[in-house]
Amino acid sequence: MKSLDKEHVKHVAKLARLRLDENEVSKYEIALNQILEEIEKIENVELTTNVELIAPTENHDLYFHDTVKNELKRNIVLKACGVDETHEYIEVPKVIADEEN
């Protein structure tokens, strides 16, 4: 059976942007292994379909047709982001000019 170690726990924490101390790492190591054991149950299910149920809705092909509406005033945008309404931008700690997409 698959199991995961402390390094793996740290990797997952890093992905989730959660900081764990060594104690927590040990705790999660046990917890995640326990969950993994539970989850492995579905490994044994013999599939009788290839259909993936993403969401239980029969809705499909819903669109809007390129109409512009519901735009917010800038002070509202800033207020919604918890920023002083007189600013122009939302500021974050300096990011190295790198990209991700």
Partner: peptide
């Protein structure tokens, strides 16, 4: 994460359908 999406997530969506 990693291969789990393929190994578990997509399988889970199929079991969900079943």
């Amino acid at each position: 994460s990693g291969e789990n999406a393929n190994q578990y997530y997509h399988k889970a969506l199929k079991v969900r359908e079943m």
